[in-house]
Structure formats: C-alpha cells, structure tokens
Design a binder for these strands. Sequence first.
DNA 1: TCAAAAGTGTTCGTTTTACACCCATGT
DNA 2: ACATGGGTGTAAAACGAACACTTTTGA
Lengths: 292, 292
Amino acid sequence: MSDNEIRPTLNVDVVLFTVVDERTLKSGFWNDSLVEPASLLRSDETGLSLLVVTKASEFGRSLPGSAIGPNERVEEAAQRIVREDLGIRARVRLRDAGFYDQPGRNPNERALSFSYWGFVAFNDLRKVLGGRDEVGLELVNSKAFMTAYAEEHGGMQEFDGISRFGLRLMPNRTRGHKRLSSVEVSGRSILGLDHDDMVFYAWRKLRYAFKGQLDPFRFLGVKALGEEFRLSDLQEFQDVARGSVTPRDAFRREMLGDDSFLEPIGKVDSSRPGKPAALYTLNSTLNLDEQD
Amino acid sequence: MSDNEIRPTLNVDVVLFTVVDERTLKSGFWNDSLVEPASLLRSDETGLSLLVVTKASEFGRSLPGSAIGPNERVEEAAQRIVREDLGIRARVRLRDAGFYDQPGRNPNERALSFSYWGFVAFNDLRKVLGGRDEVGLELVNSKAFMTAYAEEHGGMQEFDGISRFGLRLMPNRTRGHKRLSSVEVSGRSILGLDHDDMVFYAWRKLRYAFKGQLDPFRFLGVKALGEEFRLSDLQEFQDVARGSVTPRDAFRREMLGDDSFLEPIGKVDSSRPGKPAALYTLNSTLNLDEQD
DNA sequence: TCAAAAGTGTTCGTTTTACACCCATGT
DNA sequence: ACATGGGTGTAAAACGAACACTTTTGA
C-alpha cells in the first residue's frame, strides 16, 4: 500500500434545486436550449416546476463541479462553485449528499466526487442563466410529469415518490424501498457521467425538507416562494418536491394548525381564476439560520 | 489552485456496533481493560448493552481505521479493515456514515476521513478481541445508562434518543433537533481525535434500523440476536439501539401484527425468572441481502 | 405465597381519511 | 350561469397511549 502512487482527484459537484412557476419561466427565457425538456417552455401548462441547475461540459449537460483545492474543505469548494463558477450572489445553504467513487465513473481519470445539494430562489438564479458555460435548467419534477407518469403506471399508491431522475416504490414485506433509475423512469439518461444518480440522491434529501417537524424554508435556508404566497402554491411546492400528492383539505388543515409557521398577511390574490386566495408569509419568530 | 500541492491523506474509520447481554460479556472476558467503562464487567446488571469496537492507537482508544489504497474504493478499504485489521471472518454489511474534513482534526497531518458503519454479531466478534492491537469494546448505550441519565434530567420525554456518545433533544417550534455531544452527556471525551462524533453520527444511522418499515435484521444484515430470541430481548435491543423506551404492550402488538417479520418457533424459554417466554425467529421469507 | 416477567382486554382520546358542500371571483 | 379554484363541516375509521388485569414460572 505504498503512498505515493496515483490518487483519485477529488471533486465536488453541486446539485442546486430551484422552483419556479411555468409562467415566469416562459416569460423570462431567451434561449430555449437552456431549459430541458424544451416542451416546458412551449406548453401551456401552469404550476410549479422543480428544476436543477446544469451547465455544458465535455460530457454533455452536467452538474456544476470543480476540483477541491489542496487546502480547501469540501463544503468550501462547493460554496466556491456556487459563488464563482455560477456567479450566484445569494447565500446558499449546502448540505452533504454523499460521495461517488466508482472506478470508471469518469472515463478520463480516476475521480472521487463529493456531492453537495442546496436550494436557491429562482430570482437569485435567473441572472446567471446562460453565459459562457451555458448555465441552464433541467426538469426534475412537476405536477404534470407526476400525474402523467402515475396514470400510465396504475396510480400513485405504489410510489413513495416520483421524479424524472428516478423514483422509489413503496416498501412491502419482502423487499424494502425499491428504486428505479432515471433510465427506467424517463427512458434515457439525462445528464452526463453519473450525475443522474447524484440528482436522485440529492432529491431524496430534499424530500426530507417536507417531512420533518421543521418548516421547509428554515430547512432549505431560502424563501423559495418569495415573501408572500398562497397556500396552494405551498402545497404544489411540497407535492413537486416530494414527488407525491397530498389531499387539499388535509394539507390546509395541517399547515394552518395550532403551531403553524405561517402567518396570514391579510391580503388576497385575485390574479388567477377562481375565488381569491388568502396570502401567507413566514411566521416572524422564524430564523433561517438553523442546523439540521 | 495548482494541482500538485499537498493533498489530504484519505482514511476510512469503521464504526462497528455489536450487542451483547451482560452475562455473556462478563463470562467471556479475560482482560478488564478492553471493556469500558470497566464497571460494566463488575456490575450485576442484566440486560443488553450496545457497544462499539475500538482499538489502541497513538491517540488513546479509537476506531479501527486505515489509509485508503490508491486504487481502492472507500467501501473496499472499510471491508479490508474489518477483515484484515480486525480479523473478522463474518460478512459484515457496511454503510456510509459521512466524512470528516475539518482542518486540524488530526494534529499530525491534514487528513480527510470517511466513516463507515456496520453491525456484527457478538459471536463473530469475541474471537478477535484482545491481541496486539488491543481490540476492545466501548459502551454506547444500555438500559441502565439510559434510565440513570433520564432520571437525573427529568424523564425521557425531552429526549429523542440517548447514548453515551451524545443525544438528541426533541425538536420544538423555535429550534429543530438539538444535539448534545459526548462531553456534555458523559462529562468527558471518550475516544481519540473526532471519533466520538463519528460514533454519534453512525449511531444516528443505526437508529433508522428500527424506524423504517423493514425489520432491523434485514437492514443491519445480521441476526444480531441469534436464531431464536424472546420478544423482550428484541425490545431491549430496539430500546438500546434507539436510545429510547417503548411501552411493553405496544411493542408486543406492533411486532406481532398482521405482517410481522417474526415467526413463533413453538418453544419457550424458562431460563430466566418469571413466566416462560415464547421464542421467535425471523420469518423465512426474509433474505438478508437488501439495499437500503 | 410472593416476586417477576409474559401476555391480554378494554377504554378513551386523538389523528387521519374521505367526502361533501358552500363561497367568491372572472368570463 | 357556470367554470374555477378557495375554504369549511362532519362523520367514520384507524391509531395510539394508558392502565389494569390474568397467567405461569422459580424461589
């Protein structure tokens, strides 16, 4: 086990999620090729989409990443990617999402990659889309995708969570959770290298944001829906992030229960069809600086 | 960011848990100094203890670990430690338990350590205790420790889980889960370097074995209680592994519910005071080869 | 006959789920 | 008036916690 032989290079790849409603997405985009699948920009769907930040690379579109500097911590390198490679100014909370050391995962060299994941508000992201590195977005999940997939495969009940990058089947007595890969779900590999796996695993972590006792925004460290939002937006965010659907009335009652993290703001929003919806904001006792 | 500067050395440390009843522990031990705290061997407590494998090192007692070979995967290195360093012949399922890259965590050099955790049956372990490396055991948790701690600190209700290596406080509205370190719980650091953190974090992973829908043995990949056991042993195993207590009747009903992984074996065990207890074994539809 | 631990029955309150209905707006 | 989504009432069912009681052994 001599010590001065070739060592793997150490990398970090960052799985950066964002959520945006399709109207905003469509209106703000000048270059179709930066949003995949392109039909997202053409369809007349409404609702929220969960997306992941990608960039051009020699392996096709892939996650933003970089080598780790010799005296850098892994998380520091991840933060550097967000700040310098992507040019995002906002503070982003990044979390560990495992590492990948399969030999041959990079055809060019032995490479060990760490993966970090985080969430960024679309507003902080839109400014940096495009550019030399062709920073763009890839759909992870949307209500349309979920319902279409579930209809083809006999309902949501079997699934613990659905996304384009993979899904989890409900466990039963003889097997635990079973995973289907992006190829099995979407019919093809989406990003280069093993980055589909990274997105899937990071997405599993994201799902916890909506499972725990904490509100999702405190967990994610970002006001993903802006300062004020309707309850149905929050629900769609949750549904899309979890890859499952919650009954409307149950969701409402849970969110507005005794110890809610939401505060009614007093205003209503009539910008969409139907009865105007009350707007909510985050409870002011909330601070966004919390550990896991 | 030049590439040929000093890089951290890459290590793996293995957190290997085992569970054993104190009678067995006491009877089989020839060298008091290998079990800490030593009072474990002297007390006349009964019941199960959760322990972690340690060995002597220049930093006091610490986790078994080693550098990762240049062409080795991280998990392979962890398996090598179990097999060659510790000499354990049984197949052990090891899982990722995060990495540690704090500068200064090793006073001698810049070191990045991966941590893997697993579970081994005491029977497969006892043969390798002692030896040149002074392979030994450190108490992680026992019913006695838990109840003593809880009594001193106002009941179990506040705690999500208790162990000598740290504990978690129940979350509430203003903060999420809060962690207390081994120093705060046990009054002192237990292992060298940052290995207390590793044990604590691995223990958090272990706790999931008893939370999910799967039976714990399938998850751990080992029949930790042997072929047949009483329900109360299984409960004590769960309690000690989770660092919390379950009501006796609720536990029984849950375990013996419709889709139980347990099968009554037809025999009873009268080796202990009280009414003889029915013995159970794992449902035969069970196989121990499952992913997470 | 008593202690100790196994095992069972029953109650009561809460949470979950389902379904149905009403409400307020734009077209 | 009707489509669209917001918002509420209610009742059955399922679940969980608590408690008390019975059973079977060894000492």
